[in-house]
């Protein structure tokens, strides 16, 4: 009986009808046949989503619009053709040159370690941290701001944690980098090295309760047992089994593939800038 009910929704008239009646508020993802030319599809590298995470839109359904996302990606690619934005990760040491009206030579160069990164689309940003004259400095850069003249990766590496905000409470030597640091080169095709350094934190008080964050890259915190007991209470071990949470926080894989195939014509240009930054040899001038 139900199958006899005519499916009269707007989509059925202009598009290929979906397999069943749409009940969700957000319609399921239907691949746009007109836009994807299946002939030219090349295999994409597996690490695309880690190298270019900001090309994936914000997964919140109430903010999504596929036309806006496409226009945004076009703008991002256009900007990337002007200024190369290299591959970098949390923990990489970078130098950024920006136009600065108030500087004497009208530009400002800052070197620091990338402690956090976020935003999607044109809103993408990253934070650099350094200690200069015993003063900790953090600068947030918008990746697609036209003020940015140059982004250099001086040392391409990853750390054990997803955010290095605990460097604010660490000893200053862990976030001190010379402003005249030479770029270190990696051999071609080498994987991104993971720096498993363990950072020593200063004694409490801290900005956050780091004992609750399950940090990998810190030395023993040296706290009394009651802090760990309290941290145990605040653990959320069930979250890794929460499929709905994961679903809401991610873009479906087939849609990710479509997005990356859409930017595939610009892939050469993206990859060349990526290779340039990788070509730096590891000179291991650690200090």
């Amino acid at each position: 009986m139900l199958s006899a009910v005519p499916r009269r929704i707007f989509h059925t008239f202009f598009r290929k009808p979906p397999a069943q009646r749409v009940t969700a508020k957000v319609p399921p993802y239907i691949r746009d046949q007109l836009d994807s030319n299946t002939d030219n599809e090349q295999p994409l590298p597996h690490d695309f989503r880690t190298v270019y995470p900001e090309f994936l839109p914000d997964p919140r359904p109430e903010w999504r619009n596929r036309l806006r996302e496409r226009l945004e990606r076009n703008d991002m690619l256009t900007r990337r053709s002007v200024v190369a934005i290299p591959e970098f990760y949390i923990g990489s040491i970078m130098a950024v040159t920006v136009g600065d009206r108030n500087a004497s030579d009208k530009t400002n160069r800052f070197v620091g370690i990338c402690i956090s990164r976020g935003g999607t689309g044109l809103r993408a940003w990253f934070n650099l941290r350094n200690v200069i004259d015993h003063q900790g400095l953090e600068i947030m850069y918008e990746m697609y701001s036209p003020l940015i003249r140059n982004i250099e990766v001086l040392r391409l590496e990853k750390r054990l944690d997803e955010e290095l905000l605990y460097l604010r409470d660490a000893l200053p030597e862990y976030s001190t980098f010379p402003l005249d640091m030479e770029p270190e080169l990696l051999p071609e095709g080498a994987p991104v090295p993971i720096n498993d350094i363990k950072v020593k934190l200063k004694p409490r008080p801290w900005h956050e309760r780091w004992e609750r964050k399950n940090l990998q890259g810190v030395q023993d915190l040296g706290l009394p047992q009651r802090f760990y007991n309290k941290a145990k209470l605040h653990e959320k071990p069930w979250e890794k089994y929460d499929l709905m949470m994961e679903y809401r926080a991610t873009i479906p894989e087939e849609e990710q593939a479509d997005i990356f195939h859409e930017i595939a014509p610009h892939y050469q240009q993206l990859e060349s800038s990526r290779r340039q930054s990788k070509r730096r040899l590891a000179q291991t001038s650690r200090y």
Partner: peptide, 13 residues
């Protein structure tokens, strides 16, 4: 408006 295809903004001396 800054057009994305144009070079980065340079402030003149």
């Amino acid at each position: 408006l800054h057009v994305f295809s144009k070079p980065s903004i340079a402030f003149n001396e």
